[in-house]
Design a protein around this nucleic acid. Structure first.
Lengths: 236, 236
DNA sequence: AGAAATTTGTTCGTATGTATC
DNA sequence: AGATACATACGAACAAATTTC
């Protein structure tokens, strides 16, 4: 059997790992500015080019946002959303991916959610209902889309599967974007009669079948809207 | 409404896009060596540091493999596998993700596969059966795992959803790895009585429900094996 | 409005480590 | 062993964008 030769990792790769760790472990929070180049150079003891290569790697992966003359900011704690954003696909494609993943997440959440998970889901749902009560305007479209996404994200977290969570969380921004632009148009209905509550109640009852079924039903409504939307767009 | 200021992209970002395009559009094929730094510098008209930053970005994303003293090689045509590889998770997590996505892919494939898709699936399945007929050894474990993955990849392609395809294709290497190491141990059964054939036949009949059901059934068998495997490992 | 300070962007020169033949 | 080709790393200098005073 032939073994791959061990290759010592380059300095700049090591710097990437160091910076990435700061972000993943939350010492540098999303939105915050990281220390400027001269400071990092001094701390890490590497040349400027070496550091810059590392920063570029994380920038391209979507974890950092580098603004010339201003600074470098943390934008995400994972590479997956950035990678998925580059892979194209329409809103319909995003919906189909959600249709695959969401019911499974709901089922797993019903099996594995602990009390903290359930409390977070309930809180997110409460806020979502609160926002839904307000009249839809362009200003609060982003707020509503965010509130909706937050609920789904908490369900996903409760499934306790890091891979599915990563994938699903990466899909959410793309969906949020489209919902936000569509929300003031046409017949987009923000309220689904108790569909989301049903998911939460099924999780509380540890009824994984019911949780999956409710999630599927909620998605079917959104897909109908997407089909109508696309048909309308074609005739415009 | 406040608009985001337009920010002109840096030279090194433009270089990233140029290099990425060469890879994505297949002019630089996977496995090939890309031109050496001095040549790219001359062609693109940028400084060494600028080019190196771009190469590092693509290296970290998993599309390039840089070997000091040797050259830089193309390793993938997408960033998603590299990103997903960093997000942790166990084999069980990978299986659960597959369980979510695979049936949906089979359903979509039954709705959308064209003649070319079906021919490719049939070919992959034929090869898989051929390899399965050989006795399992450590040497051909990798070959079998690859043949199995190839079948699933062709089904995924036939679903004609770029996002789901990217996600699923990114999961395959992780699964292949574990199957490969487990294949000679314990009671891992490489043959499932006609399970994979059923998927193909359902796709041919355009029966999306049957395709999804067959895919689910196939996965359930693998999941039983994983549970047994984990129980065994715990008692060892 | 303008000047200075801060921060990232880009270039060049040089020396060194590593793989291949 | 030697030669060649290639990537790695450092350092210094100047350019350009942004913020701050």
């Amino acid at each position: 059997m032939s073994l791959d030769p061990i290759r010592q990792s380059s300095l700049s790769d090591q710097v990437v790992e160091r910076l990435r760790t700061e972000i993943v472990e939350g010492r540098w929070r999303v939105g915050e500015r990281i220390p400027p180049e001269p400071e990092l150079i001094a701390d890490l003891g590497v040349a400027r080019g070496t550091l810059r290569e590392a920063i570029r790697a994380l920038q391209y992966s979507g974890m950092l946002d580098v603004r010339r003359g201003d600074g470098t900011f943390v934008t995400a704690r994972s590479e997956v959303p950035g990678a998925l954003a580059r892979s194209g696909g329409s809103i319909g494609d995003v919906l189909e991916a959600r249709a695959a993943i969401e019911p499974q997440l709901a089922r797993l959440a019903a099996e594995r959610a602990d009390d903290d998970d359930i409390a977070r889901i309930a809180e997110a749902l409460e806020y979502r209902s609160f926002v839904t009560a307000e009249p839809p305007t362009r200003e609060n479209a982003a707020v509503w889309a965010q509130a909706d996404a937050a609920f789904h994200e908490e369900v996903a977290r409760a499934a306790h599967n890091p891979i599915l969570f990563e994938i699903y969380a990466a899909l959410l921004p793309r969906l949020r974007e489209s919902v936000e632009s569509a929300i003031t148009r046409d017949g987009f209905s923000r309220e689904d009669p108790r569909g989301h509550e049903e998911v939460l109640e099924a999780i509380r009852r540890r009824d994984s079948e019911a949780a999956g079924a409710s999630a599927s039903a909620n998605l079917a409504a959104t897909e109908r809207w997407d089909h109508a939307e696309r048909a309308g767009a074609a005739s415009r």
